[in-house]
Amino acid sequence: MNQGIYSVLSNEKIAKDVFKMTLSGDTSSITAPGQFVNIKLDGFYLRRPISICDFDNHSITLIYKVVGQGTELMSKLSVETELDTLVGLGNGFDISKSGDRPLLIGGGVGVPPMFKLCKDLIKRGAKPAVILGFNTKDEVFYEDEFKALGTDTFVTTVDGSHGTKGFVTDAFPLVGKYSYFYTCGPLPMFKAVYNNTDTEGQFSFEERMGCGFGACMGCTCKTKYGNKRICKDGPVLVKEEIIW
C-alpha cells in the first residue's frame, strides 16, 4: 500500500453515469490486477474505493459509476486536481491459475478490473475470452478496448439493445470451452455464473468499507476458510471458498 497525492490527468464520461479517470503518481505498490485504490474527497469523511482498470509505471486508469454524492463529486473533478489516495489495496487476481483459455466475465462496473487482468493474461500467453454484461446499450463501455487486445469479446444487454440479449450466462454457449474464469460484478450475476459453470474460478467482491486496508473489520464475510476482510484478504475470493 502506498499513500500519496495523485494528480488527475483526465476525467471523462464514457457511458451512462460511467466515467473514466486517469491519475498520475507512484504505482509501485500495485502487485496484481484486481486491486483497488481508496480516494479521499473534499467534504467526505470516508474514502471512495475504486477498482483499478489499468496502470503503467506512472499512471492509473479508473472507471467508476456515479452512484452517490461522492462519485458525483469525483465526476466533476478537473484535470490537475490533487487527490490523497491509497494505492495497491486488496489481494487482486491470481493469474497463475488461468490455463490457456480463461474466461473473463464483467458485469457493469465490474468490467474495469477485467481489463488489466486481460492484458496480463495475454502477456503470459493465454488466449482469454471476454463477456461484458450491461443492462442496456447506453451503459456499454470498453467493448472496443477489449477487442483491440485481440480477445473474443461478447457483449450482453438485458434488454437486447446491444449484443446478445440477456445475462452474461446467455453468452456462455458462444464462448465454448474455457480453462478457468475470473469475474467481477453484482451478486445476482455471481450466483448465475456459479450455477452455470463446472470450472474453477475467482470472484471479485464488493462491500461497503470503512478503511479499505484491513483495520476496521467493516467488510468481513464468512468463507469456508474462515472470516475474510473483503478489503484486505479480498476482494478476490476463489470459487471453492465462497459460502453462497
Partner: peptide
C-alpha cells in the same frame, strides 16, 4: 452482518 459501516458528515457509524 454487513453493511457494518455508514458514512456521516465528519464521521462514520460502525456496527462491527
Amino acid at each position: 452482518p454487513t453493511p457494518r459501516i455508514a458514512e456521516c458528515t465528519n464521521g462514520l457509524i460502525n456496527s462491527v
